[in-house]
Amino acid sequence: MGSTISSLIVATEQGDKPAAEALFAALYSELHRLAKRELARQGLPASLSATTLLHEAYLDMAARDGPSFPDRARFMGYAARVMRGLVIDHARERHAQKRGGLFEITSLDTEAMESAADHRELIQISEALDELAKVDPALAEVVDLKFFCGFSFAEIAAMRDVSERTVQRNWERARIYLHGKIRAPLSL
């Protein structure tokens, strides 16, 4: 295996774009593989939480790469971004662009579907986040961690070493930005 994850992280932080892509790809397949492994284990509950997966991934990769592996906090930022990609791909597959479908959710959804973003919106969110990350990376990261991975405010605050209130404010700001970019009230 070529570069280790830790060296890719270091390179990415130094602005190496190809390294960033390689990192993304590596994390993606790692998470994928891990998810499959976790789910294939007999006797496990039917679903797995993203945070558990990410923690497992961290432990797994840190064990392999050795002591130079960056700390959990740094890792989580990247992993969360990758998770976003996984989630969207999954949503895409499920709702199948290949079906040629452009679905619309009307005002008559039940509670279950109602607040869950549909795949198209997820993609829009992702694109908007990429844009936002250019000027306000902390905000984009909060969304990755909270929305796509399900970390709590407290966990995120711990990871980023800021107050929980700050995380909450960032979350709200990010929501405002995204909402403005994406949502238009639906017509009947």
């Binding site: 998810a35 039917a46 993203a50 791909d89």
Partner: peptide
């Protein structure tokens, strides 16, 4: 958006078997 509960519920995760 707060009223709408925008992004309050997370997206479906690829983690169900």
């Amino acid at each position: 958006l707060a009223q709408e509960g925008f992004l309050e519920t997370g997206p479906p995760l690829p983690l169900k078997a």
